[in-house]
Amino acid sequence: MTSRKHYLTRTRDSRTQELRRKISDTLLSTQVNMDEVEKKVSSFEKRLEEILYRLDDLENRLKKLEEILG
C-alpha cells in the first residue's frame, strides 16, 4: 500500500451529465417496443417448456429402461 492517501475530488463533471442524458433518451426510446419484447419472451418460454418436456420424457424413458434392465 502506498503512503499517499487517495481522495475523491468532485469536479464539474460534464461526462456524467452527458451520460445521464443519453441514459434517459435510451430508456425512453427502448420502452416503445414493449409489445415486441413480450412476444419474444413468450416464445422463449414456449421453447423452454418444450425443452423441459423433452427432458422429463427422457428421464421417464431412462427410468423405465432401468426397471426393465433390473
Binding site: M1, K5, H6, Y7, L8, T9, R10
Partner: peptide, 11 residues
C-alpha cells in the same frame, strides 16, 4: 464520506 470528500479511500 469518501464520495463527499470527508474521508480518504484508505480510511
Amino acid at each position: 464520506d469518501y464520495v463527499f470528500g470527508r474521508a480518504a479511500l484508505e480510511d
